[in-house]
Each structure stands twice: as C-alpha cells, then as structure tokens.
C-alpha cells in the first residue's frame, strides 16, 4: 500500500475514521450517528496523481474535507508532510465540482482571490503582482483574453478552468479535486482531463482526484483507490500503468486501459450495488445524509 518508499509521504492517512451525528428527526427523536469513513490508511507520495472512486455516500467528499482541513477526523490522523492537519492551509487547494467561483469577481479577480492577504511566506503581493500572476495562471489553463469576464459569461468548462487557475495561483503543493469535471459535457471533460495531466506534469503537484467515473479515474490516476460503500473503507488500490502516453492515440481503447478499467469496474460494481440496495445518497456537508431518515420510515410503513 505504501508506494512512496522515500522519506515521508506527502500525504498520509492513518486509520482515519469520521462519524457524523445525524440531527434528531421525527422518526429518530434521539438522533443517530452515521459512520462516513472507517479505518482509512493511505500514503500518497509527493508529485503523485491518485484518483479516488467509490459509490455514492461512501465518504469521498468527507475524505477530501479531512484533507483540506475543513473538518477533523474522529479517529486516526491526517498528516501532510508528516505534520498533522489542524485546519485549512495554503499548502492545499480544493477544486469543487460546482466551481465555487465568486460571481461578483471577474475571472482574473477570482484567480487573484487566494493571493490577497499575506502569503505563505508572510509577504503581501502588490496589486500589479497579483494581476500578473492571475494572468499567468489563466494562460496556463488556456483562458488568455478572458481576464475581465464575469463567471456568468463563461461556459461550465471555462468556469472550471478559472477555478483550477485559482487554486494553482497561490502555489499549493497539493490539489484536492472533488469531482471537478462531473458537471461538464463529455467533450469538455476529456479536454480538461488532458489539460489537467499537462498541468500536473509541468507543475509536479500532488493531486488527489475524486470521481465516480471509472474511465476518468483510470485515465488520470497513477493509482486508483476504490472505496467501499458506507461506511467508506479502502477496498483496494489499483496501480495503473499505461506506459508512456503520447497524447495523440486513443488511449481509452488500448487493451491495457480496458483491462485496468475492467478491474476497477468489478471492484466498484459490488459496492455500487450494495450502496444502491441500502439507498445511500450523498452525505451533506453538515453530516446528514438524505437517505437515512426516509429509509427508516419506509421500514416502519412496511
């Protein structure tokens, strides 16, 4: 499981578990606890691109929140560079599925958002420096000339490019991506996947990428971590070796790709079925899962 055999892994999850208290409802007056994650142990080496797949409600987003420092684990430890995560930090950036752009800021101002205020070295960037950096990172994601557009003037793909530029702009070591391309159409998604790989190669970031697309996971990741249905456990990690990618060929129809894809698919398939039977749905940020309560009332009615 430990691939980063070097000194300290960039990210290290040690037996991480997370529970939520479900608020009391009519059906469950005393409230219940919901175990989102259980016993997750995973090391990610610096510069690695790892993808995370799992059925709905398997705690993928919860895991990402833990890594981002938006919540803390109930058991175990989350380590970045060997230090325990105590809160959000500029060494990690999150890219959300719904872009999370600030609609009152132009593309450039959105990218510059993380540059305002003191940086990691305690220095404040001037207005000019911020604008230069914003322009640079917009260029990196292929959005030169769109600096002054507001988010509502951009397509979904462009919005996500801006969001990626924003998280790259303050130069974090780790990119945490939560189904970033799920809301995009197939062509835009493929295009952005390629660009993400290009950016990853040129910047050497460590990327943790959550998706529920098996193709996407296999295409992007050096390793694919498969989570089980709730409570989310690490079911297996699949090493992906697609050889040298020229970028021209259709790698997705390659025999090796298909083989990997099938492997991940079969691992995931059982879990998805289990999750569906249990009626699991997405765990909300506040820890409630919409499927839990109705499930119980159904049981009562029967």
């Amino acid at each position: 499981m430990t691939r980063g055999t070097g000194p300290t892994p960039k990210i290290s999850l040690r037996n991480v578990g997370k529970q939520f208290t479900v608020r009391p409802s009519k059906d469950q007056p005393e409230g219940t606890t919901l175990t989102a994650l259980e016993g997750i142990t995973l090391d990610v080496a610096a510069g690695e691109f790892i993808t995370l797949v799992g059925p709905s409600g398997s705690g993928k987003t919860t895991l990402l929140d833990l890594l981002a420092g938006l919540t803390g684990p109930d058991t175990g430890q989350v380590l970045v560079d060997g230090k325990e995560v105590t809160g959000p930090g500029r060494d990690r950036a999150v890219v959300f599925q719904q872009y999370a752009l600030f609609p009152w800021r132009t593309a450039a101002a959105n990218v510059a958002f993380g540059l305002e205020g003191p940086g990691s070295d305690g220095r404040r960037l001037g207005r000019k420096e911020r604008a230069d950096k914003a322009r640079h990172y917009l260029e990196l994601v292929g959005l030169s000339g769109f600096e002054d557009r507001y988010p509502h003037e951009l397509s979904g793909g462009m919005k996500q490019r801006v969001a990626i530029a924003r998280s790259l702009a303050y130069e974090p070591d780790v990119l945490l991506m939560d189904e970033p391309f799920a809301a995009l159409d197939a062509q835009t998604r493929e295009q952005l996947q390629e660009e993400l790989l290009r950016i990853w190669r040129s910047t050497g970031k460590t990327i943790i990428f959550i998706t529920h697309g098996i193709d996407e996971a296999v295409y992007l990741g050096q390793r694919v971590a498969v989570l089980s249905s709730r409570p989310g456990r690490l079911k297996q990690i699949v090493d992906i070796d697609l050889g040298e990618r020229s970028g021209d060929g259709d790698i997705r129809s390659d025999a090796v790709f298909v083989e990997h894809r099938h492997k991940v698919w079969s691992l995931l398939h059982d879990e998805v079925r289990k999750a569906q039977e249990a009626g699991h749905a997405k765990i909300r940020p506040d820890g409630s899962a919409p499927d839990e309560a109705p499930q119980l009332s159904q049981g009562r009615a029967a």
């Binding site: 981002a68 938006l70 959000p88 999150v94 999370a100 940020p285």
Partner: peptide, 14 residues
C-alpha cells in the same frame, strides 16, 4: 450566501 462559496473561502484559510 451560497454555502459553497463559504467552503471555498474557508478552504483557503480565510
């Protein structure tokens, strides 16, 4: 305010 925006800002350590 869109809670997602707050999450995004929080993830930046604001």
């Amino acid at each position: 305010v869109d809670p997602l925006l707050i999450r995004a800002a929080r993830s930046l350590g604001l």
